[in-house]
Design a protein around this nucleic acid. Structure first.
Length: 420
DNA sequence: TCTGGGGTCCTAGGACCC
DNA sequence: TCTGGGGTCCTAGGACCC
C-alpha cells in the first residue's frame, strides 16, 4: 500500500510562505529566463493561466488581474523541499523521494490510513508551512490517481484513500476522470487511446493488458496492470546512479560569436563537473550542442551536436571543459543567432572501478586535490567564489531573472526579519 | 523584445557478424 | 521468376515525467 504526498503548487507555496500578503491572490513562478509559468496558484489557474504558458503572452491578463510573478528561486525550493521530506521520513518506515515536491510512502500494514494522511498534512503545514495532499492506493499508479482526486475535490480536505471504498464507488470515481490523468499517459497516447474509445481511467482499467502491450508497448501494459492493483513498480529508496548529466540554459539575449558562446559553455561544463563529482562518477564522453531559437523562424535556423569521446575517463572539470570547447569549435557556424548551448556527460561509470587502457592513467592525485579544493571553496563561500577564467567575468549571456525573491533560508544576509 | 531544464525508458532500424 | 537467417550492438528519436 502506497501513499503519495504531493505539495500543492509547490514553487508558489514556497514564495507565499515569505509573502503571506499574497494569500488569495493569483501568483505564478516563471521558468529560467522568466520564460514560462511553471507553477501557478489556484487563483492563477482559475484565471486560465496554463502550465508552461509563455509569460509574455500573459502580460495583459496579469495587468488586469494583478497576477504576481516570481523568477525561479531554486535554492529556496530545494531547501524547503528538504524540510518537507525530512518530516515525511519520520512518518513512514520507507520513503521514496520522487521529485522536488512529491514522495511515495510505503504504508503497508497501517490500518488507519486516512488518519495517517491527515496527520501528514497537518504536520507538514505546521512544521514547514507548505500545504500537501495525500493519495492512497494499492499501487503507485493508483496512489497517484488518488492524489489527483484529493487535489481536485475540496470536500475531501486533501486526503483520499481509493482502497477504502467499495468497488462500485471506486469505479464511479475512475469513470469520471479522463485517461490522460493517468501516470504514464501523456498527450500522444491519450489521443490514440481516445480514438479507440478508451476515454476514462475506468475504460483503460478495463482493457486487456495484452492487447495494450501489442499496440502500445510494455510500459503502458504495466500501467494497466498497476491500475488493476497489480504492483509492477517498486519503491526506490536509494536513487539509482545517474546515467547522464546535462547542463544547459537559454541565453538572456541571442549570441552570435564563437567567443561569446564559449563563455557560457565553459560555465556549464564546469557545473557538469561539479554534479559529476557529487555523483561520484567519471565520464567517458562529452556531448556539446548549440542551437538557434526555433520560435524565431524568420531567422536562419541551425542546430548541431558533437560527441567527444575521452580517451581517459575523468571527473576533472578541466578535461570536460577542454572536450566541450573542442566540440563547440567544430560545430560552430558563423552567421546565426544562437539561443542555447549545452553540455551533456554521457556514458558515466562509478569513479575508481574503471577499466582504463593499460597506458592511460585516470585522474591523478593532483587533479583530484584541485577539484576537491575548488568544490570545497564554492560550497563554503558560495557558488562562483572560484571559477575558470574561460567562464568570463562580464557575463552578457546571463539568464534573465528580474523577479527573484530572496534566499530567505540559505543566506544569512537575506534572512527574513520579524518585526515586533 | 519575450516561448525552461532537467531526466528516464523503450523501440525501430541499421551495421555487422557468422 | 529467384536474392538466407538470426543474433547482437549501437544510435536516434519518441514518449513520458516533474
Amino acid at each position: 500500500m502506497y501513499a503519495l504526498v504531493d505539495c500543492n503548487n509547490f514553487y508558489v507555496s514556497c514564495e507565499r510562505l515569505f509573502r503571506p500578503d499574497l494569500k488569495g491572490r493569483p501568483v505564478v513562478v516563471l521558468s529560467n529566463n522568466d520564460g514560462c509559468a511553471v507553477s501557478r496558484s489556484q487563483e492563477a489557474k482559475d484565471l486560465g493561466v496554463a502550465m508552461g504558458q509563455p509569460w509574455f503572452q500573459l502580460q495583459e491578463l496579469a495587468k488586469r488581474h494583478g497576477i504576481v510573478a516570481f523568477s525561479s528561486n531554486y535554492a529556496l525550493y530545494a531547501d524547503l523541499s528538504e524540510r518537507v521530506m525530512s518530516v515525511l521520513r519520520d512518518m513512514a518506515p520507507r520513503i521514496e523521494v520522487y521529485s522536488i515536491d512529491e514522495s511515495f510512502l510505503d504504508i503497508a500494514g497501517i490500518t488507519e490510513r486516512e488518519q495517517l494522511g491527515r496527520q501528514i498534512r497537518e504536520r507538514v503545514v505546521r512544521w514547514v508551512g507548505i500545504p500537501v495532499c495525500v493519495g492512497i492506493g494499492a499501487t503507485k499508479t493508483r496512489a497517484k490517481l488518488a492524489n489527483h482526486i484529493a487535489k481536485k475535490n475540496l470536500e475531501l480536505a486533501g486526503v483520499f484513500d481509493l482502497e477504502a471504498l467499495p468497488i462500485e464507488e471506486q469505479a464511479a470515481w475512475l469513470g469520471r476522470i479522463g485517461v490522460g490523468e493517468v501516470w504514464g499517459v501523456g498527450r500522444k497516447i491519450s489521443r490514440r487511446l481516445e480514438a479507440l474509445g478508451v476515454r476514462s481511467v475506468a475504460d483503460l482499467q478495463a482493457t486487456n493488458p495484452e492487447t495494450i502491450r501489442q499496440q502500445f508497448g510494455v510500459t503502458l501494459a504495466r500501467t494497466v496492470e498497476e491500475l488493476r492493483g497489480v504492483a509492477c513498480l517498486d519503491m526506490e529508496e536509494v536513487s539509482p546512479r545517474k546515467k547522464q548529466i546535462m547542463v544547459s540554459r537559454s541565453f538572456g539575449q541571442p549570441v552570435r560569436l564563437l567567443d561569446e558562446l564559449r563563455q557560457p559553455l565553459v560555465s556549464y561544463a564546469a557545473n557538469a563537473g561539479v554534479k559529476l563529482r557529487e555523483e561520484g562518477s567519471v565520464t567517458h564522453a562529452v556531448m556539446v550542442f548549440a542551437r538557434t531559437n526555433p520560435f524565431r523562424d524568420k531567422y536562419p535556423q541551425y542546430s548541431a551536436s558533437r560527441l567527444v569521446p575521452l580517451v581517459v575517463p575523468t571527473q576533472d572539470s578541466r578535461a570536460i571543459i577542454e572536450a566541450a570547447v573542442a566540440g563547440l569549435n567544430d560545430l560552430y557556424r558563423p552567421g546565426y543567432l544562437y539561443q542555447k548551448v549545452g553540455v551533456m556527460l554521457c556514458d558515466l561509470s562509478p569513479a575508481g572501478v574503471d577499466q582504463t587502457d593499460l597506458f592511460a592513467k585516470g585522474d591523478d592525485e593532483r587533479s583530484q586535490r584541485l577539484m576537491a579544493t575548488m568544490d570545497g571553496l564554492n560550497r563554503r563561500m558560495g557558488r562562483g567564489a572560484v571559477f575558470f577564467a574561460g567562464q568570463g567575468i562580464q557575463r552578457r549571456w546571463m539568464v534573465r531573472s528580474n523577479l527573484k525573491s530572496g534566499a530567505y533560508t540559505t543566506k544569512w544576509a537575506q534572512l527574513q526579519v520579524a518585526h515586533a
